[in-house]
């Protein structure tokens, strides 16, 4: 059995152990000592490095996703249903097109 194979098996188990801490790691809330361990592991494990980077990228992409507006027609019907029709004022709607991707 080659040492390369052993090393690979070892890494899979290590990767699995680190998986749970990655959330705190990408948020920057993981204890410094564990951070150093993960960083040392990433230096020798390409897969984990890619997972951490793409995990952070995934979070960023969702945080940057444009928010759908509340359409004025929906707002108006809401006020009506709540018996608050006299208080309805159109909101600052930037466009009339509904969010077409949902």
């Amino acid at each position: 059995m080659s040492t390369v194979h052993l090393q690979h098996e070892h890494n899979r188990e290590t990767c699995r152990q680190y998986l749970e801490s990655l959330g705190d790691y990408v948020e920057g809330t993981l204890a410094a000592e564990l951070c150093r361990e993960i960083e040392a592991h990433m230096a020798v494990c390409d897969n984990c490095r890619i997972v951490v980077n793409t995990l952070a990228k995934t979070i960023t992409l969702y945080r940057q996703m444009p928010s759908p507006e509340l359409p004025n027609a929906v707002r108006e019907r809401l006020f009506a249903v709540l018996d608050l029709a006299p208080y309805y004022r159109p909101g600052p709607e930037s466009e009339d097109e509904p969010d077409s991707v949902t």
Binding site: P68, V74, F79, D99
Partner: peptide
């Protein structure tokens, strides 16, 4: 009541849209 709706309706709608996936 109207103020509560004005303050929070947009956020609640966004959450509902993401949860339900349709308008």
């Amino acid at each position: 009541y109207a103020q509560l709706v004005n303050d929070h309706a947009a956020r609640i709608y966004r959450l509902a849209l993401r949860m339900m996936g349709n308008e």
